[in-house]
């Protein structure tokens, strides 16, 4: 599988990152098998979080067995110094490892949170201490919030080495600033910050729970995913061709093999084909009737 430099970290990440939340939906034996399967394809970057049910615990055994082959990303939703230390300790314990390669501020949404993490008593102070102590190697941030907030974070956090954000043809087709993750991608590239893409496989939201209860959803993803092999391949190619360092696999284990296949075969996607995909989803979505043309 193709690898790309993850910003200034010195690590070359596989063009697909394994979203280890998928392990949460499997028993331990199945989880072990999935990790072996993912490694067989050449994936060398894993991403996990304490919020993903038992994913940390289920990743543990195979992570420890293959520790040298896996660049491990983990994250915390804590915004304070104390909270971040507590969660880091807990993740290290649950994963059963001595260190985490990339520790990320998880799901930044509001300006006040950026103020909080960058403050004297903020999470980043804990991150930096942990880095000095060799418990983590690199600092990152994840957000599916306002792109402007991520840009602010890139301005304000000097030692930020990776950012994780949504990128897919649905958001790429929207002009509003609230979807302008392309600006984040461009800025990160300028600053040589690694970029990790989420929601590459999102087709749309789930129907309301009145129409379809959570228990009746056929996939474990937060969003309704594309599920056909061709669509998965197009979505992967699109995200990777936009210039992300690595595309994170969808959270449902049923989709992982298709994404691995797409990632292993990845060979670029030209711009006319990228626009074709953007146009297709824009029209699938469009409220304007009677469009004969593009």
């Amino acid at each position: 599988m193709q690898t790309r430099p993850l910003g200034d970290t010195g690590h070359d990440s596989s063009v697909m990152t394994f979203g280890a939340i998928a392990l949460n939906w499997l028993e331990q034996e199945g989880a072990n098998q999935l990790v072996e399967h993912v490694l067989d394809y050449g994936v060398n970057h894993f991403d996990v979080a304490p919020e993903y049910g038992d994913a940390e615990l289920k990743l543990g055994p195979k992570l420890r067995q293959h520790r040298e082959e896996i660049f491990l990303g983990c994250k915390t939703q804590e915004r304070t110094y104390e909270g971040a230390w507590r969660k880091l300790d807990r993740s290290l314990n649950r994963l059963g490892v001595d260190s985490i390669d990339l520790y990320q501020v998880h799901g930044l949404e509001y300006d006040e949170e950026l103020d909080a993490i960058t403050g004297d008593d903020g999470a980043l102070a804990a991150f930096r201490e942990a880095k000095e102590q060799g418990l983590i190697d690199h600092i990152g941030l994840t957000s599916h919030g306002d792109p402007d907030l991520i840009l602010d974070a890139l301005d304000r956090i000097d030692d930020l080495e990776t950012v994780m954000f949504p990128l897919n043809p649905v958001v790429a087709g929207k002009d509003d600033d609230e979807y302008d993750y392309e600006a984040v991608l461009a800025r990160a590239e300028e600053q040589n910050v690694g970029t990790l893409g989420i929601k590459a496989f999102a087709a749309g939201s789930w129907p309301s729970t009145d129409e379809l209860s959570e228990a009746d959803r056929p996939f474990a993803n937060w969003y309704r995913p594309v599920t056909a092999p061709d669509e998965i391949r197009e979505r992967f190619d699109f995200a990777a061709a936009r210039g992300l360092t690595s595309v994170i696999s969808a959270g449902d284990p049923k989709l992982v093999t298709m994404i691995l296949e797409a990632a292993a075969d990845y060979d670029g996607m030209d711009e006319a084909a990228q626009r074709s995909l953007i146009e297709r989803v824009r029209h699938d979505d469009s409220p304007v009737p009677e469009q004969l043309h593009h």
């Binding site: 030209d270 006319a272 084909a273 626009r275 074709s276 995909l277 146009e279 297709r280 029209h283 699938d284 469009s286 009737p289 009677e290 469009q291 004969l292 043309h293 593009h294």
Partner: peptide, 20 residues
Amino acid sequence: RTLLEPVPWTESHVSAHVER
């Protein structure tokens, strides 16, 4: 320059042409 290749004739395009 090439703007789209392939051209996505989506369900909404198909139905607009059918109606026409």
